[in-house]
Design a protein around this nucleic acid. Structure first.
Lengths: 198, 198
DNA sequence: GCTGCATATGCAACGATTGGCATAAAGCGG
DNA sequence: CCGCTTTATGCCAATCGTTGCATATGCAGC
């Protein structure tokens, strides 16, 4: 119910082929919505059948044909309607945190390694994002509307990476402390079911 | 490839019925991994067929029978192996950010409302999490291993909610500025494809 | 007494997503 | 000139996830 919308949004910029869409998904919209090329091609067929987009085949000399998709009036309307629809909270899939729930049953070293790996990832991304920000969005208040949306995406990326990094530091410390000095004994104490969230 | 693992982790605490698992998913593991009860029941059947868990039917007077599932040795081993496996980065599905990409094409007021709604959600959650933290995890360094995992989950929740709130404030300001004073003209300037991320 | 909620489990249909594979040609490096 | 990567599109199978529905009972509140 939403990959189609992400595609519509992307086509707003200009008509594109499936291949282009797939590549752009890796750089822009895809930061908030991942999709593989198979998924995109299939979705494009469906959307064309529904009349949301319109594909035009362009023959190319000595290259495979390309199919360039553009928004139809229906597609634009569908997009407008979707934007006006209340947004569901983001769905979460944080494997690492699920693993941490097994802490006490599993070797802490294994988890330490994975947290460190995660830390590296966040560091890389943060550096990337900050570079992009400096290059492309020097002063946000001067941006045109469409750029503001993109800037805000980047901004959320930066804030979340920073928060994640702070968490990694805490986690390394807290899990690391288990490794060497402690006796790691006696886990089954009284507590009925110490809740966490939601 | 991971709901089964989340269930295994949850069964680590104690044997549980599908119903209990579904309810706990709303409070604990489910913060990082959502699942509906239908999904859980189906998964339980599969896992029982694979020998990862073992279900025992308990007849109850004047209540539907319950099926209590417990980890088998195979299940425990599968869990250990999974924990030792490198963790994939979390998958993201942030609908709101996709919508922001349509900024300039769509009415800013609509988006403002949705950002405000999101802000409310984050505020609520943050308050919840902080209350839980104060109640259950007064001093993290004194926690037993298993509690540390849970504490870290809560901690990440708090950090991410705070970051999200900071973002909401920025977003409201930047999108709100579009609403009243500006002429909102001329969007199609030079820029080829200002990238964002990844 | 009716309504709604909580307990407790499940099926069926559909849609979303992933992974493997296939085709086809151009350009690049060794 | 051989193999690798890039461009460009697609099928198929399997799994994962969501929505709607069904069943059965007990308890609390109106």
């Amino acid at each position: 119910m939403a990959l189609s919308h992400a595609i519509l949004v992307s086509l707003l910029d200009r008509p594109q082929t499936g291949y282009e869409l797939a590549k752009r998904f890796e750089r822009t919209v895809g930061f908030f919505w991942k999709a593989s090329h198979q998924q995109i091609y299939q979705q494009l067929h469906k959307m064309a059948a529904q009349g949301l987009i319109d594909g035009e085949t362009v023959a190319q000399a000595e290259r495979p044909n390309r199919i360039v998709y553009a928004l139809t009036a229906d597609g634009q309307q569908a997009l407008q309607e979707w934007v006006a629809t209340p947004t569901a909270p983001p769905s979460v899939k944080e494997e690492l945190l699920v693993k941490l729930f097994a802490l006490g049953e599993a070797a802490p070293e294994t988890l330490l390694r994975q947290i460190a790996a995660r830390q590296g990832l966040h560091r890389e991304r943060l550096a990337e994002y900050q570079a992009l920000r400096e290059q492309h969005y020097p002063q946000p208040s001067g941006l045109k509307p469409r750029q503001r949306g993109r800037y805000l995406g980047l901004r959320l990326g930066i804030l979340l990476e920073q928060a994640s990094l702070a968490w990694c530091a805490e986690a390394l410390e807290l899990v690391g402390a288990l490794d060497e000095p402690a006796p790691r004994a006696n886990e089954n104490a009284s507590d009925g079911d110490p809740p966490l969230a939601r």
